[in-house]
Amino acid sequence: MDMDLMLRVYPFFLQAAGTTILLSVLTALLGLACGTLGAAARLSRFAFVRFLGAAYVSVFRGTPALIQLFILYFGGPQIGIQLDAFEAGVIGLGINAGAYMTETIRGAIISIDKGQKEAARTLGLSRWQAMYRIILPQAARLMVRPLGVNLNMLIKATALVAAISVIELTYTAQRYIGSTYKPFEMFLLAGVLYMIIIYATGRAVAWLDRKVQIT
């Protein structure tokens, strides 16, 4: 193993890891927004809106994220969507992650005992008041860990955008292999950096989960 080489190139990898982190953060935020909307749709009192929510989940969980990225980035211009690689990466991965988060959020909401809603409604709270004051605060606590799993998957999925040439960790590793012919060292370096990012997020999620539990 060529340690010298690894030490020489790692600053560039760190920079690329920064892009991976930025990509992950933006994707997570967009995913959370899509997931919230998706869950709201899945729980709507209108059958058509519920159908839209279910269709969103089936389509984006039912096809490879890579294909979704390719359609958006390479196919987009054909239908008038012009995005640079980074934008396409965030939007594509965000919408994809949102489909998974939809189910996480919906699952947490429907797992709250229906007696909670009944008690709230019985006191005179409206559907919406019962949702945001009684159901959501309890569901949010249940969501932390499974959303953490979604986050973990999403960070790893950012490696896919190397295929549309976003200069993040995986792409950077490939580029340095082109000039050094040392795939073992380069991919190992990228892998270690991914692991550090994921380990840190995992710890943060675990901390948050402890923090929000009731007494």
């Binding site: 005992d113 007696g115 909670q116 009944e118 008690a119 709230a120 409604r121 019985t122 006191l123 005179g124 709270l125 409206s126 559907r127 009684i134 605060p137 309890q138 606590r141 009731i214």
Partner: peptide, 24 residues
Amino acid sequence: YEKHINQMRQDIGMVFQHFNLFPH
């Protein structure tokens, strides 16, 4: 109807078998 029933329910207290207290 939602408006009406929310108003009516303010006047009707209910106690459940499983308490249904808000745990948070």
